[in-house]
Write a protein that binds this DNA or RNA. Structure first.
Lengths: 251, 251
DNA sequence: ATTTATAATGTTGTCTGACAAATCTATCAG
DNA sequence: CTGATAGATTTGTCAGACAACATTATAAAT
């Protein structure tokens, strides 16, 4: 059995990848529909004239990419909601990196605020207001309020009713956790900073409540602009101090 | 050899995933530094008391996640730039979806333009200008100019000197290809539209060239705002027509 | 005839052993 | 000290087997 009938993989690249590509293509083009069962590993091995190990690694890649799910004893199936994977470098915790993340936050959250002002439902508005209140509550109890701060901005992203924003923000959250810890730690160092933050949050919420797109976008932009400014005023040893708290145990 | 010394994986979940998690954790915490070599597959198998197959699948997952790279005959190494994967649902090609992508583009490209105006190097500015010229050239030759349009916006993202923007834009490019084909097909239907687009592009470049952040951001915002407006003016059968061209053959 | 156990079969998960291909290391010649 | 060669190491692939689970077919019972 040395013949390659059907479609033979082009040489050069790794074997599993070649098979994975063909299957991926078949899924993306809709040739294999969501929920449909893939050929068995043995069948695929015979089709491409490769061993089961290679087939398994290929399927492993698809599974990892969220394109298929495997059930022992049953088979592998095309996922109901096929996904693609975006691979991103893990940001280091330097000040430079934190600022780069702030820039991304600005891009996303300014627009999210604009869309939220335009589209938020009453219940979404309520959730946003609750989230803002939660921050103050947490701070009064003595917590750092990082989780609440993140939740607050997440509710706004949700209110944009555009899944792209929430998906990306959710993804970056684990790194934002560190970044926000840094900014909030910094802001808590001076009372004036804390007051500013509360004020800025309030401005965003007010604009969203009134449905004033432009005001919401500007308020969000100002908030993150000031956050960056406040961060640059921070003592130089701030990052090390936050590092030591071990607060960024997420991931 | 039936004992699990060291750290034994908790039962229940699939074996390879358990091992993958432990290794992932070690990498994320910096316990294993970038560039460092992993233990051999045989060694890992012995440590966790599992067969090489399982170890290989675990490493395959890490490789797939961009955390390690393997070199035959040499070993597996922690990637120099460890990454994490963001999995997103593949957007459908409806008008609604195209507009959602436009909103994301606006968020990213407005801010990218602002940063580009602030930080672009002379050579980056040159590349942006070339990219803009390429669009006109392609159109004159009779091409649709989609690839050139995408490249143009990509060079601006590059000039922002923030890798987050380029990473996300690169990722969404495969879907933007379809979206931009739609918008450009639409724009090419009326001469006035085409003229507008050229004008708007020019405005962005001018602002970036002069280092005027605010103007660059506004120009980019206007461009995408108008793109959405133009799209909404499009004939209702536009999407189907684009579909038929088969231009979106990219994966 | 329908339902319920039971057996047979099919499929993925894991184990074991082997060899090929590429790389690394140590030895030796000059 | 340099360079070539031989050996050892390590990942990639193959082959076959069994275990764990799922599905299907068969038989039994009411």
């Amino acid at each position: 059995m040395t013949t390659n009938h059907e479609t033979q993989p082009t040489r050069g690249v790794q074997l599993p990848e070649q098979v994975a590509r063909q299957l991926t293509h078949a899924i993306h083009t809709g040739e294999m529909r969501p929920g449909e069962r893939l050929p068995t590993e043995a069948a695929l091995g015979e089709r491409y004239d490769i061993s089961r190990s290679v087939v398994r690694e290929a399927i492993s890649m698809l599974r990892n990419a969220g394109l298929v799910t495997s059930r022992r004893g049953s088979g592998s199936f095309v996922a109901e909601v096929p996904t693609v994977a975006l691979r991103l470098a893990i940001p280091d915790p330097s000040l430079q990196s934190v600022i780069r993340l702030l820039e991304l936050r600005r891009a996303l959250e300014v627009e999210a605020a604009r869309l939220a002002a335009q589209r938020r439902t009453p219940s979404q508005l309520r959730r946003i207001r609750n989230a803002m209140a939660d921050i103050d509550e947490a701070v009064e109890v003595g917590a750092d309020g990082v989780d609440q701060d993140m939740a607050f901005h997440r509710t706004i992203a949700e209110a944009s009713n555009n899944t792209h924003f929430t998906a990306i923000i959710d993804f970056y959250n684990r790194f934002l956790h560190h970044a926000i810890t840094v900014t909030r730690t910094n802001e808590s160092l001076r009372d004036t900073f804390m007051a500013q933050v509360i004020e800025e949050h309030q401005a965003i919420v007010d604009a969203i409540a009134q449905g004033d797109e432009e005001a919401a976008a500007q308020a969000a932009g100002r908030h993150l602009e000031h956050a960056e400014w406040r961060l640059r005023q921070a003592p130089t040893d701030l990052l090390e101090r936050v590092e030591d708290t071990g607060a960024n145990t997420s991931v």
